[in-house]
Amino acid sequence: MSRAVVASAYGGPEVLTVVDSDPGAPGPGEVVVEVRAAGVNPSDWKGYSGQWGRDRARLPLRLGREVAGVVVAVGPDVETRSEGDEVVAWPVVGGYADRVRVPARVTAPRPAGLGWAQSAGLLLTGSTAVHLLVATRVGAGDTVLVHGGSGGVGRLAVQLARLRGARVIATASPGSHDDLRRLGATPVAYGPGLVERVRALEPVEGAVTAAIDTAGTDEALDASVELVADRSRVATIAGFVRGGELGVQLLGGGKGADPGTDIREAARDQLAALADEGVLDVVVAHTYPLEDAARAHLESMQGHPHGKLVLIP
């Protein structure tokens, strides 16, 4: 019998429990994946925190949106996957488990250059980064300001923007500056005086052509619209209230935001291929056993973990 982590009520991490869970046989177009690693994301705990409502009919909530693992069963009409294939999968439902049944179409080959934990942290943050860059039309010749450059989404946005030929300025705490330089970005500290520090790097008016916000702070958004002339080239995945007031693009799952479903799902194979080529790097901050999902969520809630958090069944 497989184990799975569920939220049995709405509240804090104390509501998480490990239960027996049989994923069942795969139906048409489905595969069963033996999970080797499951990515932890803020959306996992926001779902049971009550931020998105408290519909008791949805309980218990199955958690986990992205996994890396091995295909152990293949349903009818699946020609793209075979038993024994190592895959990454996103979006899934109930990825915090030993085994999970998923549509074959949400899987991609696991990048050979990444470990299991790294692989489990690639797709959700990577597809979000792709959406941000596509929406703000970042390409060769641009200078893009990435707020929260050392976070999961920000770090991949830095790498993907560089692959598109853009110059990148990324905000982060000083302890992350060397890592950002290694990725090809020019780091800058956030906090009071941010606009002046960026202008010291780009003294020509209008030199910063796009900005993406993964931090969600008023400072990040206010600085973005001060530095970027075209507000359609500023996007946020976290600061929906201030972003709405400023008229920038709101992306993701927030109220009034563009989910970018087609863009994000189209990025799945692209991200896996780039990681397989060794040109994308994923940092894992900490791993936890499946039964310690509550501790992983507490760390996620407390702020910037400087890398992905991953559960290992």
Results as ranks from 00 to 15, higher is better:
Val31Lys: 12
Val33Pro: 01
Val33Gly: 02
Glu34Ile: 02
Arg36Phe: 00
Arg36Gln: 07
Gly39Cys: 00
Pro42Gly: 12
Pro42Cys: 13
Ser43Ile: 15
Trp45Glu: 10
Lys46Pro: 02
Tyr48Arg: 10
Tyr48Val: 03
Ser49Ala: 09
Ser49Gly: 08
Ser49Cys: 09
Gly50Gln: 15
Gln51Tyr: 10
Gln51Arg: 14
Trp52Gln: 10
Arg54Ala: 09
Asp55Thr: 05
Ala57Tyr: 10
Ala57Met: 07
Leu59Arg: 01
Leu59Asn: 09
Pro60Gly: 10
Pro60Thr: 15
Arg62Lys: 10
Arg62Asn: 05
Leu63Asp: 03
Arg65Met: 14
Gly69Leu: 00
Val70Lys: 11
Val71His: 02
Val71Thr: 01
Val71Asn: 05
Val71Leu: 09
Ala73Pro: 00
Ala73Met: 00
Val74Pro: 00
Val74Asn: 02
Val74Ala: 07
Val74Lys: 02
Gly75Cys: 08
Val78Phe: 08
Glu79Gln: 11
Thr80Gly: 10
Ser82Gly: 14
Glu83Gln: 09
Gly84Tyr: 00
Gly84Ala: 06
Gly84Pro: 01
Asp85Glu: 08
Val87Leu: 11
Val88Tyr: 12
Pro91Glu: 03
Val93Lys: 12
Gly95Trp: 00
Tyr96Ser: 05
Tyr96Asn: 10
Ala97Arg: 13
Asp98Thr: 06
Asp98Glu: 11
Arg99Thr: 06
Arg101Thr: 03
Val102Pro: 01
Val102Thr: 05
Pro103Leu: 10
Val106Asn: 06
Val106Tyr: 13
Val106Pro: 02
Thr107Val: 13
Thr107Pro: 01
Ala108Leu: 09
Pro109Arg: 15
Arg110Leu: 09
Pro111Met: 07
Ala112Tyr: 04
Ala112Leu: 09
Ala112Lys: 11
Gly113Lys: 07
Leu114His: 01
Trp116Ala: 14
Ala117Pro: 00
Ala117Met: 04
Gln118His: 00
Ser119Ala: 15
Ala120His: 02
Leu122His: 00
Leu122Tyr: 04
Leu124Ile: 10
Leu124Ala: 12
Leu124Lys: 09
Thr125Trp: 07
Thr125Phe: 07
Gly126Lys: 08
Gly126Asp: 09
Thr128Trp: 04
Thr128Arg: 05
Ala129Val: 04
His131Ala: 04
Leu132Ile: 06
Leu133Thr: 05
Leu133Arg: 12
Leu133Phe: 08
Val134Asp: 15
Val134Glu: 15
Arg137Met: 04
Arg137Gln: 14
Arg137Val: 07
Gly139Asn: 10
Ala140Cys: 13
Gly141Trp: 03
Asp142Lys: 13
Val144Gly: 02
Leu145Pro: 03
Val146Ile: 11
Gly148Phe: 15
Gly148His: 14
Gly151Leu: 12
Gly151Ser: 15
Gly152Tyr: 06
Gly152Lys: 03
Gly152Val: 04
Val153Thr: 06
Val153Tyr: 09
Val153Pro: 00
Arg155Asn: 15
Arg155Thr: 13
Leu156Val: 07
Ala157Gln: 03
Ala157Lys: 11
Val158Ser: 03
